[in-house]
């Protein structure tokens, strides 16, 4: 499981935790997150996330 960070605001998507409040169940891999997903904090699209080691 990996983590992905929004390069615009720093919000973290943790694959293990998912984003249940956005309708993404825990354990959802980033590649399986819908293409129209937007960052809940700043609204940028999926292309503006990058994988991070935390």
């Amino acid at each position: 499981m990996k983590k992905w960070e929004c390069v615009v605001c720093g919000w973290i998507y943790d694959e293990e935790a998912g984003a249940p409040e956005e309708g993404i169940p825990p354990g959802t891999r980033w590649e399986d997150v819908p293409d129209d997903f937007i960052c809940p904090d700043c609204g940028v699209g999926k292309e503006d996330f990058e994988m991070v080691e935390i």
Partner: peptide, 8 residues
């Protein structure tokens, strides 16, 4: 002056 309205 925030990003969310700007993106919308």
């Amino acid at each position: 002056l925030y990003v969310l309205p700007l993106m919308a």
